[in-house]
Every structure is written in C-alpha cells, then in structure tokens.
Write a protein that binds this DNA or RNA. Structure first.
Lengths: 207, 207
DNA sequence: TTGACAAAGATTGTTAACAATCGTGAACTG
DNA sequence: CAGTTCACGATTGTTAACAATCTTTGTCAA
C-alpha cells in the first residue's frame, strides 16, 4: 500500500501470483473485489488494468463529494463526539509531520484519510463506505492530475474544519469544507489526456 | 429477480449451481460480488447467508439517505431535465399499475427504483451507485419490517415529489422527500428480533 | 516498405479432482 | 440419562490441468 501504481498499468495474474506468493484463485478474487470498487478495470479475456479516471469522472467525484460532505460536517458540528475529535486531532498531527518531510504520496494518503475519518466518526457504516470509495477515487485523481507543489490539501484547512466542528459551528464547518473541496479541485491540472507518460511509466515498471 | 429470499437463508453453492445451471466458479464469483455489496454475508468455511439487517442497520440506512437524498432532489429541482422527467413520469405510471394489482413485492421494487432513477438522472455515476446500494438495502429492510398494508411508499408521494421537481421548487421537493423518507421509516415495525418466522421461511424454502 | 494473414506464444477463463473444514449423529463413558 | 468424543457425511476452499481467447511475431505478397 505504499507504492503507487500508474494508471493503465496492466496487472497480470501470473505476476501478481509470484509477487505476493499466492495462488491464482486468491489473485482473481482480489482483482474482482478491486474492480467492484472501481479501483481497477477488468476487461474480459484481456486482463486487469489500473483505473484511469478522466476529466469527466473527476468532476463526478467532486460533485458527489460536494453533495455528501457538506451536510456531513454540518451534522458533525451539531453533535461532536469527544473521542472522535481526539482521533482527528491526532490525525492532523500525522499530516503535519508528513508535510514537514515532504512525502508527497504519504500526504495524499493522509489527506484522504482525514475525510474518511470524518465520515467514520458518524458511526454510520454506509456513510463510511461511501466516503471511503469517494476518497479512494479522489486520491487516484489527485495522484494523476495534482500539481506537484500544491500536493492536495492546502496546508491547514483540515485543522480549521476540525476547529469549527469542535466549536460546534455548523455553518462555518460546512463553508470551510466547501471551500476546501473547491481548493482541491481547482488545484488539479485538467489535461484531458495523460496517456503518454503513463504508458512510459507502465513500461518502466513492468519489469 | 422476482422472488424474494428470506433473510438468513443459506445459499449453498451446489444448489445455486444446479438452479442456474452454471459452474461453481460463476457461483462463487457472484456470491463474492453480492457480499461486497452487503446483500449476502460470507462466512468462512460455512457458506453464504442472505443478509439480515437489524434495527441499528436500518437506522443507519435511513440516516445515510437522509443525508444524501434531500440535497439531491434539491439539486434536481434547480436544474430539471426534460428527458429524465419523462422517464420518471412513465415510471410512476408503472407504480400505479402495480398498486392497483396489489403486487406487494413489485410495489416495493418499483418504489425503490423510483429513488434510484432520481439519482440516475443526475448523470453522476457515483451518486447513482451509492443510491442504488442504499435503495437495495432499504428494499431488504422494508421487505423484513414493512407492515403489510402500508406496503412501502405512501400512495402518491413520489408523484408529488416529481411535480415539485418539474415546477422547479427546490424547497418543496426537498421537504416532500424528507417527509417521504420519514413516512417510510415510521411505517416499519421495529421488532428487534425476527428470527423465528424467518427460520421457518428458510426451512420451507430450502427444498 | 507496407499490409494482410497465419501460426506460435502468452494470458485469461473454466473445469474437475483434491484437501480442509465444519456440522451431525452415533457410540461410549461417567 | 446426560455429557463427551469420535467418526462420518456434507460443504467450502484450493490446486492444477485444460480450453478458449487474445497478442505478438514472422512470413508472404502487393
């Protein structure tokens, strides 16, 4: 889970088998699950390929998050839970640490996880699962289209959102989150085709 | 897809194989997918069982829908699409027909599908998928806890919601949908354990 | 040189036999 | 008679060989 795979990378069963040292059945089951989560794409008789979201899909992801997350944080701010607030505070400390060390992939991962944990703190299994799926996809997108300096989430917006929740200010929390999502989205470089360098990356990695 | 299966019914691989006339691999793949959607539960070395949502899960489902659907219909009402409106109108005609014939399972199915089609008409793949999952789960719950007369969706609430959307009245559409979800939820009989008659049903059906 | 065609190689999809695990019931013991 | 243990049957999990499909490569002809 540390190393990121370039989109459109082909995942051959044989290689996954020997990489992870498991039978083909396990690999196929894992691939099926990943494809049901939209992380890879299974093409009949052709293999599994890492999903390669395009501009339109990216817009859909952010539209979906714009629909769900604002009411979510509003609700959290109306009824904050001390335990979850503590967990989120700890999490932000982790983010800051990663930011200091300039670990880009780790920053992306933790930035996503913050939003997942927000959803998790509702205690609602379904909200959590939906959010996790959207966050996973967002991470893919940021990894693809994110400009290198603005690595994903502008510095301390997470911490501001958390503060608004803690101070039980629903309107502010909601507004901060909306701006936050907008910042992330506007930080993306929406080149409509990014295949060349990805094919290259796939070739380099395929050995 | 017509006949409903009682929760906690065991789905043995062998029986599914001969029922659908297909190899064990296909069956296992289908079971894995169904379990990833939470429709069945896979127990290691013990088999697959139809999911049996309890009171707490039912609350979570409605909480999640309460979070998503109101903003969704509000958004639809702000920007209605003629084609989708026509499709939804047709759909309501189907619902009315089923209601006249008193086909309970069909009414439940179509009632759910209305909400799915609402989500679909956003054109957003992710919103659609989320909604479909929630609606599926809701159907399970209504089939389990729904009282027989109030079969799921009070008569013409769908039609009222659609009318509000068509007349581009976001507040009314949102409010109608909130009431609608509340009606459905309050129509449920929340017995915390419903095993006896389900076990019976499972036994009767197991042949 | 380029294009099409065909055969070989590689990869995925399927099947069937085998291994492991679990539930049940009979036998045994206290 | 109650409780425990063991063995058998049934069911799921795994493996390996086979079939089907796709990709590639080499050849031939225009």
């Amino acid at each position: 889970m540390e190393q990121r795979l370039a989109p459109n990378t082909k995942l051959s069963e044989a290689r996954l088998c020997e990489t992870f040292g498991v039978g083909r059945m396990r690999v196929r089951r894992a691939l099926l699950l990943l494809s049901s989560q939209g992380i890879i794409e299974l093409q009949s008789n052709r293999g599994a390929y890492v999903a390669c979201p395009d501009k339109s899909e990216a817009n859909d992801v952010f539209a979906a998050r714009m629909l769900i997350e604002p009411p979510l944080v509003r609700q959290l701010a109306q009824n904050p839970n001390d335990i979850d607030l503590a967990l989120l505070t700890d999490h932000i400390a982790l983010e800051d640490a990663a930011r200091e060390k300039n670990e880009r992939t780790e920053i992306i991962r933790l930035s996503g996880e913050f939003h997942t944990k927000l959803a998790q703190s509702t205690g609602n299994k379904f909200i959590f699962r939906m959010m996790r799926e959207l966050v996973t996809r967002t991470s893919l997108i940021v990894g693809l289209f994110g400009s290198s300096e603005n690595a994903s989430c502008p510095d301390d917006e997470h911490s501001n959102i958390l503060r608004a929740i803690r101070s039980q200010n629903p309107e502010m929390a909601e507004q901060l989150l909306i701006s936050h999502l907008n910042h992330i989205q506007s930080g993306l470089v929406m080149k409509s085709r990014q295949e060349p360098q990805d094919d290259l990356a796939a070739i380099l990695r395929s050995d």
